[in-house]
């Protein structure tokens, strides 16, 4: 074709190259943020870089990590799941009750996973097949799960779990020593588990056809549908994944606390889950985000809270910083898509 029409294509390609490169890699922000934070804290906060504390942070990733992974799946597909944190309690109390009654581990664990998936499936059916608004649906499920847990237990914590269960999930393995640390420190199983699940589900999301369908559905549901992607199945599946993650969280937390309660994770933590996911590059409009980014987003938040606890600085300042970073990240996302 003519030279005339060739010249009219990229009239606004004047963005600096570095910015362009950075924009194309949204997972980089939380990675950089985490690394910078880690270095600053290691230099300024006593005991922060101590192996015991590093393992402590690693283990803490297992508390919210699964829920963040689930949230990433749902948000990439363009949805949101507000219910996962109460589903944790619902799954935990039932599974724990069975464990206490049978003095076995496996059926209870299976039940926790199952209940998580059932709640996820309920969300999925309502959002994907009945076309209800995710925010409202999962808000309702959140209340249902919480009510169910309280009703089921009469608000009493479930106690007396089999040692095998507690020892398995809250165990510390592969003792290590670092530098001058006197005693070897074990690696928390919760951290190892979340790392493995993050690697597996991160792989599925970023490399496989299933993951691509999730991204495309979130990027533009209508286009995805016309392109032959079964968007309802895709959306349904993401909610089930989120539910399964709540089930795994139930196992980890129940073992760690030695009890299942009706309010293991509170609503304030929901903010952390969404914050980690958004800092990790996900967008509430869907189509964006990655497990890698989310995990570093969570690492950032965990380190922040840990460092403040070590310093004995008011935890409420940490809240201010978290909120500020979140707004800044969302602002950056807006700039990036402009």
């Amino acid at each position: 074709m003519s030279d005339a029409s060739r010249s009219l294509v990229t009239r606004d390609s004047s963005v600096p190259r570095l910015w362009h490169w950075f924009s194309a890699r949204p997972a980089l922000l939380p990675v950089v943020l985490s690394v910078v934070m880690a270095v600053i804290f290691a230099l300024t906060v006593p005991n922060f870089a101590d192996l015991r504390n590093i393992m402590n942070i690693f283990g803490q990733l297992g508390f919210l990590g699964f829920l963040c992974i689930g949230m990433t799946y749902v948000m990439v597909a363009g949805g949101i799941d507000l219910s996962s944190y109460t589903v944790v309690s619902a799954a935990a109390v039932v599974g724990a009750t069975v464990m206490v009654a049978t003095e076995t581990t496996l059926p209870g664990c299976f039940l926790m996973l199952l209940i998580g998936c059932v709640f996820g499936a309920i969300n999925g059916v309502a959002v994907a097949y009945l076309r209800m608004i995710p925010f409202i649906v999962t808000l309702s499920t959140m209340v249902v799960a919480e009510g169910f847990a309280i009703w089921f237990t009469q608000a009493q914590s479930v106690y007396g779990l089999p040692d095998a269960f507690i020892d398995t999930f809250s165990a510390r393995v592969f003792p290590m020593t670092l530098g001058i640390t006197a005693r070897p420190v074990g690696t928390p199983v919760a951290g190892i588990m979340v790392l493995m699940v993050a690697l597996a589900l991160g792989f599925v999301l970023s490399r496989t056809i299933y993951g691509r369908r999730i991204y495309l559905t979130g990027a533009n549901e209508e286009t995805a549908r016309v392109s032959g992607i079964k968007v309802r199945q895709v959306k349904f599946a993401t909610y089930v994944v989120a539910g399964a993650m709540a089930g795994i969280t139930a196992m980890i937390l129940t073992a760690d606390l030695g009890t299942a309660t009706t309010a293991m994770v509170r609503d304030v933590r929901l903010m952390d889950i969404i914050a980690a996911t958004v800092i990790g590059g996900a967008s509430l409009r869907g189509g964006k985000g990655s497990i890698l980014g989310t995990m570093f987003g969570l690492l950032f938040l965990t380190m922040l809270s840990n460092a403040f606890n070590l310093l004995g600085v008011s935890p409420f300042i940490a809240m201010v910083i978290k909120g500020t970073v979140l707004v800044a990240v969302i602002g950056l996302d807006v700039l990036r898509t402009k």
Binding site: T208, I209, R212, A219, N220, E222, T223, V226, S227, G287
Partner: peptide, 24 residues
Amino acid sequence: RTDGLFLEEAIWKNISATNLEQYV
């Protein structure tokens, strides 16, 4: 814009979207 393109995505992702199985 409504149902033809993934506007925020790269050209290559738009083009392969209709035929993902082919690249698996």
